[in-house]
């Protein structure tokens, strides 16, 4: 177990370096000089040079990367934004809770939708419910989140006036003019629904397929041959096994989405990581972009580890060695 964890941590470090380095290299391939943007439109060549020196972009990229690593590892500091000189730590720190609210709330939303629909349509294949849910899956997978978001915002937000169309309210301390759990949830209902639709569709399909597969397992027949009633067969023998792969997928999808639910955040103007990353990209703001990448990578690494540990706990066949 200790050896397993040690190996995982080493792998995480390798992965981390690979991801951040690739991001740096890509950035230097973009023929845009952040110093020019910083120096402004009327800047002379000397001004741009001074700006470049100030930002550190006049050094070769590997020096910059080494400095970035040094700052991050030694001081846990992501540096300062090229665009507005804000601390990237605080930029990411402000954006992460927004994305986390969206992703975790969305995950609860989509599991609440996908679990009952997936299980019921597996129990009654080819029924009306099954066909309706498969239609939903098709729409959910085909429709783009931006389109769904705009349609939701138009109908529920604008036409019906049920929900706010844009904006975010802080859960705990109101930095904006609204705050508190109720306002927080009220503002997030539409983003949650939008975000959840795609995943709910994918999960309905996966849960249905898993349950259908598991229903045909020999041990399910064994359970019936023991005289177990159907609800017990379903709960203790079918679902317990059918949910194993769902747990893995859930962990992977959540960790991936934590890197920024770009489309949903854009439609509803949520100041999350996705929006931050796009802002950074548009302004050639390496520190901000790297900040988001660092956070996303860590989220993925940590979540995958959690999922693996969880999996070893719920599936006795898996031993971590």
């Amino acid at each position: 177990m200790v050896r397993y964890l040690a190996r995982r941590v080493i792998w995480a470090a390798v992965l981390f370096i690979a991801v951040t380095l690739v991001a740096y290299v890509l950035f230097f391939l973009i023929p845009n000089d952040p110093a020019k943007l910083v120096a402004g439109k009327a800047a002379t060549d000397a001004d741009v040079k001074r700006a470049a020196h100030f930002l550190g972009t006049d050094r070769p990229f590997y020096v910059q990367y080494a400095k970035f690593l040094d700052r991050l590892v030694i001081h846990q500091n992501l540096g300062f934004s090229f665009a507005n000189r804000q601390s990237v730590n605080s930029i990411v720190g402000n954006a992460a809770p927004v994305t986390a609210s969206l992703v975790f709330g969305g995950a609860i939303f989509w599991m609440l939708l996908a679990l009952p629909i997936g299980i019921l349509s597996a129990l009654r294949p080819r029924s009306l419910l099954d066909r309706a849910s498969m239609t939903f899956v098709l729409i959910g997978i085909s429709a783009h989140p931006i389109w769904i978001g705009l349609i939701f915002a138009y109908f529920f937000g604008f036409k019906l006036g049920w929900t706010p169309i844009t904006g975010y309210c802080d859960f705990i301390n109101p930095s904006t003019d609204c705050g508190g759990p109720v306002q927080w949830a009220y503002h997030l209902v539409l983003p949650w629904a939008t975000f959840a639709i795609l995943f709910a569709a994918l999960y309905v399909r996966m849960i249905r397929a898993n349950v259908l597969d598991t229903m045909n397992e020999d041990y399910v027949r064994t359970a019936r041959s023991k005289g177990a009633p159907e609800h017990l067969v379903l709960r203790s023998h079918i679902l317990r096994n059918a949910m194993l792969p769902v747990v893995t997928m859930l962990g992977m999808d959540i960790s991936l989405a934590l890197g920024g639910a770009v489309f949903t955040e854009t439609v509803y103007s949520l100041p999350g990581l996705g929006k931050t990353a796009i802002f950074g990209l548009n302004n050639n703001d390496i520190p901000t972009v790297e900040g988001v990448i660092v956070f996303a990578t860590l989220a993925i690494i940590v979540f995958n580890l959690v999922v693996d540990l969880l999996y070893a706990w719920i599936d006795p066949r898996i031993r971590l060695t």
């Binding site: 020999d218 027949r221 064994t222 023998h237 096994n241 719920i314």
Partner: peptide
């Protein structure tokens, strides 16, 4: 009657026991 008056053993013992429950628990359930 199933499992009480008539019981059944299946062909493939590798797949006929539920992999996520302990042997004891599966017997106790029966």
């Amino acid at each position: 009657i199933r499992g009480n008056d008539i019981a059944m053993i299946f062909q493939d013992p590798m797949t006929s026991l539920n992999p996520v429950h302990r042997i004891g628990a599966q017997l106790v359930e029966a």
